[in-house]
Structures are given as structure tokens and as C-alpha cells.
Write a protein that binds this DNA or RNA. Structure first.
Lengths: 338, 338
DNA sequence: CTGTTAGCGCGTTCAC
DNA sequence: GTGAACGCGCTAACAG
């Protein structure tokens, strides 16, 4: 469609394009009469200035950074997004453009849109599993990439955590407290999005048990869809076992909340009768007093931005940006078994 | 700072600017040798194409829509944001640029940034209370505004709900169930952000009681900071009153979750002994089975985008975009008193 | 106060 | 295969 330009407006209003520009920019040196004529023409023609052209003469080229993520309702993603937002805010040189993938099979479209639109300089990919073709397309569109993943990738620079180590850490912590009957509640894997999170944490759990000479009791492993409720149901079942576990390692704080609820419902005291340990350390968790593994979510978003900005400046510091290792935050839901 | 342009690269590589352009756009008709020379020059000079200039010749002018909101951790805001995201996705003609206000006193800076940057065509303001000066500044920067608020505004087109009516509806629903001892748990007001939500819903509560000839018992009104935990504490206190309420109207689903937890902890059965009604209808709430007042959060974001797009096109349909009225969604946490 | 002109940085013709 | 004009829509500096 032929866009209406400042020139059309000028002709229509019977003035020069300079005058139109002045009206557009609220320049006071325009007589009221002509200003009104111009404004009328603008309205009539439904003229709308072209942003790109407008920016051009100023030479200003601020950055647009995209963030690609699945779900806007999943806490860990949103907390990372907040970190990204804060870092970008602090840097004061870039905007945050949000891209949300609603389903795994819609990634293609989105990447197409992003590459064809040429609107962003860099992209932070949170958790979304991109194929090599996607990455290739992004790169040839000259978009600098940084991933924030649950497992390190070769295909692009990443901020990531070692979930196997995290799972190991969590389980070992419970073992050190003296627990010998430790359950695991997590997402079933593999899942539609290909998130490796649950699998990795479970492997850490398994390795820790093995290292400390404890057998893995299949009854103590409950995998299912993600969610507080399903986790609650799993915890119920665990607690009603003839020989219930004395500790539950939930692979996420949300699931730990579910387990907590189940314990409460069954009148099972935490941490006296059952220790519950989460993973994530959501902002919420401190309020609930949940013991958990802190994986520095906010920092991961923050670090992602730093890395990206360094990369955009060809600054070698980019490769130094990492994440603190996960750590156990002990609050009130874990203790030695009684 | 003097930006390095395609011309600099051309000179450096000893080629014409056309060739550089071709390399940039992956045009296959460039010999491998020259391509390499150009790429080297690009790297040496740290050249980065100007997005605006790039878009200019194509005539493509896609929209950038900003979203301004406080907190990225507050569920109702995030759900509205999701609605915005979905609508923009569906329209396929605009990007979502995210602006997050971290504190009420930082609104000024942000508005300054937004107006000086000239990056967006429209702005959807979620819950943030803007002064007339802010709105003025935005308008003279030619940014079209739509607000999504908890109370209708005159200063700009809005999607809003009537929280007084919502509070009335909620309370009347409980009264109709037969409750005569109905408590209210909400945020204390006024608050730092100036959100009128709790006050409005409380007024609806009060009016409903009055309309139905029930006295307002001050012991049954608990106001405090927002949060599941504080609500939980309030609910505890309510339930331990010599004459406890038979129903609790929590002004938000999160607070209702807190009340639910308190009831569980005290062994107080829901809904047999205590009915609990929330407000919001978060995505989460259906999983929990919480009875609540649906205020169409997602739709409000969706509608905001529609209204904005109409406004940008001077389409009078803009004024027809509204929101369904709030409705009570009865699930399992409310029933007649026994 | 207002019209005209010269770029802004890049993609796209063309000729070479 | 490659270089050099030309124009995208707009702002700013300059004449009037």
C-alpha cells in the first residue's frame, strides 16, 4: 500500500514540507492558522509519520533487544524476564521487545517474523529449543544471540546452570541432614517443549543417592505434568505409603508448594515429619519459608543482557559472564529426620 | 559518536557500497574473495547496519506498541500482558515493547525516555497512574494511548472494570447463598501506587451488605499489605474469632489462596465450615477450584490492543471495545452455610 | 513565519 | 561480478 507521506500532507495543506515537519514536532514557530490547516490535512489523509525515516537524520541508533520465551505464566521464566528488564533499564541503551511462543510448533513462524522484520539487534532466548536452522536464520539476519538455558548449548553463547549438579546438591543436602528415605517429585520427561530440566535434576538426585550408597526406591519417584496440583497429589500418595519418605525433593518451588499443601492436608508436620525441598528460589518462596535450591533466576536474565551487550560491542568480557553455582537456601521446611 | 557506515566499510575493503550491501543481505552474487574482504572490514570497523536506514527504502512501517506496567510478578498484570501479547501476535502488524516501572517515583524517567526515544506508536498503560503532565507529554510525542485500569479515566481511552460493582456482585452472591457473617480481606488503602482496587471492592462489599440489611462488622474487615501470606494470617485471625465468619470475600485470588491455606491449617473445612470467594479468576484458580469473580484479565489485554489499533486507524469502532461485566465463577470453595 | 535544499544510511536499480 | 547513481520519508539549516 502506498503510504501517505509528509509531502502529500504538504500538498494537501498548500504548504511546504518543512512546515509540516514543524507541526509534527511541535515547533512553536508556526502560525496558528497554518498549523490548523496542516493538522486538518494530517487527519484527512490519516497521515502517520514513518518512524524509521524520522530517526534517520538524528543518527541515533538505540538498540532493540528481543526476548523470546515460552509461557508468560511460568514463574521461573517471568523472573528471568524481570532480570532482563532490569538490566536493560539500567543500561539505558536498549528496548525490550517481547516475543512469546505459545506452542512448540509455532516457533517457525515466530523466527520467520523476527528475521524478516529486521527489528532487533540482539535476541535473548529463554528456554526455547531452537533448531540449527532457526539459529542459522537468526545469525544470517545479523541478530546476536544469547541463550538462557537449563543446559549449556554449543550453538550459541549461553547462560546456563548445571541441573545435574543442582539435583546432586539438593539430594546430598538432604542426605547430610540424615535422611535415608528421599523422594523425588518432578515433571515427566521428555516433554513437548524438550525441556531437560526434570531429567537433569533427577539424574543429579540419582547420582547423589548412589554416591552415598542409598538405593533408589522407584516408589519414591513421582513424575507427571508440571503443576502445583499434580505435585500435591503425588505428595499425598507418597505420604500415605506404608513406609513414607522423610524428605521430598521437588524439582521446582511450585511443586514444592503443592507438596507442602499435601502435607498440611494430611496433618503431616513440616519439617518434623516431612522435609520438603524445592528448586528455583522464586520470589514467593522466601515468604512461604520454603527451603530450596537457589538457581539465581533474576541474575540469569541480568547476565544474559550483559553478555549480549558485550557481544554486540565485540567485547571479550562477554565470555566471562556466568552464573553463580546453585546453592541450598535453608529455610523452615527442612530439618533432620526425627 | 560518529557511526561507521556502509561507506566506511566499502572504502576500507576497496569496493563499492553496493557490494557491501550485497554481502550484508546474503546476496549470492558476490565472489567469495570480495565477500571475505568485506566481512573482514566489517569486523575490523565493528560495523553494524542502521536499522532505521535499512527499513527506509522498503517502505515497510510496522508498528511498535509499548506496554507500561508495574511489577512483572503480580499475576493479574501478567495475565493482562499475555492478552496484549496474544492480540498483537494475532494482528501480526506490531511488536510489543515492554516498559516496566519499578517504583512509583520512577515513572517520570520512564516517560521521559519513552517520549524522547520516539520508538513506539502506541502505548498500553496497565494500572500505572499517570499524571496529566505525563499524558500530555505522551500525546505531544504523538503516541496513542490506551489504559487498562481498575477504574475508568477521563484523560485517556480505557478498558476498565467497575470494581464497586464487582465487590457488590461478590458479596451479594454470598448473601444469596445464605451467609450472614461475611468477612472482607483486602489491601490497605490508599497505597503507594494509588491503586483504587481494594477500596472499590470494599465499597461494593459494604453497599451489598447495606442493601441486604446486614450490618458491617468491623472485626470482619482485614486490610493489610498485599500478599498470600498476610492474607493467610488475616484469615487465621478471622477463623479464630469467638464468632467466626461463615464466608470470606478476598479481594484477590492470591489472597483467597492464603485464606484457603489458613483454613486448611486450622482444620476448617472448605466450603462446609467456611466459604472462600476470590476475585480475578487467575489461570491458576481453576486448578485450585477456587470460586471467584472473573474479571476477564486476558480479555482486557486483548481489548486494549484492539482499541489501540482502531484508534491508530481512526476507526470509530474503537469506542465500542469494552469488557464483559464481572461474573461469579462458582467452583468448590463456596456453598451455603451449614 | 515559511519554502527550499541538503543530507541521514541503506537497498535497488542500472550500466560497466 | 561490481561500482555508482537515485530515492526511501524525514529533519535541520538556510534563505527568503
Amino acid at each position: 500500500m502506498p503510504f501517505v507521506t509528509i509531502r502529500d500532507v504538504a500538498k494537501r495543506a498548500g504548504v511546504g514540507i518543512g512546515t509540516v515537519s514543524r507541526v509534527l514536532n511541535n515547533n512553536p514557530q508556526v502560525s496558528v492558522a497554518t498549523r490548523q490547516r496542516v493538522e486538518e490535512a494530517i487527519r484527512d489523509l490519516k497521515f502517520r509519520p514513518n518512524r524509521a525515516a524520522r530517526l534517520l537524520p538524528s543518527g541515533t541508533s538505540h538498540l532493540n533487544i528481543g526476548v523470546l520465551l515460552p509461557y508468560l505464566s511460568y514463574h521461573p521464566f517471568v523472573e528471568r524476564l524481570r532480570g532482563v528488564q532490569q538490566a536493560l533499564d539500567a543500561a539505558e541503551q536498549a528496548n525490550l521487545v517481547l516475543y512469546n511462543v505459545s506452542a512448540p510448533d509455532r516457533i517457525d513462524e515466530l523466527i520467520d517474523m523476527i528475521t524478516s522484520q529486521r527489528n532487533i539487534d540482539g535476541l535473548i532466548v529463554i528456554a526455547v529449543n531452537l533448531t540449527d536452522a532457526h539459529i542459522e536464520a537468526l545469525y544470517s539476519a545479523n541478530i546476536t544471540l544469547v541463550g538462557i538455558y537449563d543446559r549449556a548449548l554449543d550453538a550459541m553463547p549461553c547462560i546456563s546452570i548445571d541441573n545435574v549438579a543442582g539435583g546432586f546438591l539438593a539430594t546430598e543436602y538432604l542426605i547430610r541432614l540424615g535422611h535415608t528415605r528421599i523422594a523425588y517429585i518432578g515433571d515427566s520427561f521428555p516433554n513437548a517443549w524438550g525441556f531437560p530440566t526434570s531429567e537433569d535434576r533427577f539424574n543429579g538426585y540419582r547420582q547423589a543417592l548412589h554416591t552415598h550408597g542409598q538405593a533408589l526406591n522407584p516408589d519414591y519417584v513421582r513424575l507427571g505434568e508440571h503443576g502445583e496440583n499434580i505435585a500435591r497429589q503425588h505428595a499425598r500418595e507418597l505420604l500415605m505409603l506404608p513406609e513414607p519418605p522423610t524428605a521430598i525433593f521437588a524439582m521446582s518451588d511450585m511443586q514444592a508448594f503443592g507438596a507442602l499443601a499435601a502435607a498440611r492436608e494430611l496433618g503431616c508436620k513440616t519439617p518434623e515429619q516431612i522435609s520438603i525441598l524445592g528448586f528455583d528460589d522464586l520470589e514467593l518462596s522466601q515468604y512461604v519459608g520454603l527451603s530450596t535450591v537457589r538457581q539465581h533466576l533474576r541474575e540469569s536474565g541480568f547476565g544474559g543482557v550483559q553478555k549480549l551487550l558485550y557481544l554486540l560491542n565485540d567485547d571479550p568480557q562477554a565470555h566471562q559472564i556466568g552464573l553463580p553455582t546453585p546453592e541450598v537456601i535453608q529455610r523452615v521446611t527442612t530439618a533432620a529426620p526425627s
